[in-house]
Design a protein around this nucleic acid. Sequence first.
DNA 1: TCCTTCACTTTCCAATATGGAAAGCGATAG
DNA 2: CTATCGCTTTCCATATTGGAAAGTGAAGGA
Lengths: 103, 103
Amino acid sequence: MTAGQLDPAFAATARLQIAAVLAQVDSGEFSRLREITGVSDSVLSKHLSALVEAGYVTLSKSALAGRQRTWASLTKPGRAAFTGHVAALQAMVAAAGAAGAAG
Amino acid sequence: MTAGQLDPAFAATARLQIAAVLAQVDSGEFSRLREITGVSDSVLSKHLSALVEAGYVTLSKSALAGRQRTWASLTKPGRAAFTGHVAALQAMVAAAGAAGAAG
DNA sequence: TCCTTCACTTTCCAATATGGAAAGCGATAG
DNA sequence: CTATCGCTTTCCATATTGGAAAGTGAAGGA
């Protein structure tokens, strides 16, 4: 098992949630991500921008029902970084989790 | 499986590490925690104080080799909160992890 | 007893992160 | 041409995190 490493890009819970959602789908809609993270438009936009800046997410706009929609997708590096981050997190708490389950 | 919830007390990586370590041992020595977290004395002290404030950790001083040592232990609520936090984290990324493993 | 060292604690300060409100902007509807 | 939708960007406030350095109590040495 590769431990991976914690990635500051996923330090914010909202960004971890975004990545977690995007890891499960090909593309996530802006509004859905906003609902899941529970943040405002501006904040979600900024988080997505940060992830794009990191090269972890790509955004695409496509019209749906005549209106513009923004779709976010994890890039390959983004998925790798997310997987590594989660692995690092799990490694950090693995033994603790086992202890918790046992005790 | 109880999902638990994210606890702001463990938002900082250092505090998550502290809790993870303390979950595995009865007592953790200050200096060991400092090495693991990689933070300065003052910062570790403040993190521990925060956890004590939250009722998640207790500190005890006992002389070892003539010198004062500080030992930290997770309280029962602290362990529960930690377990819940980790569970929430896992719930958040569980499906993503599965997807990552599959793809 | 006084001074020094050890092992933290507390204070002070700086940098960063996070979040929302509101204004901005391009695209589409009327 | 104007209004609305769907984000973006700007502006601002607050919280968090971190280190340096001074402070404190206990133990050791002169």
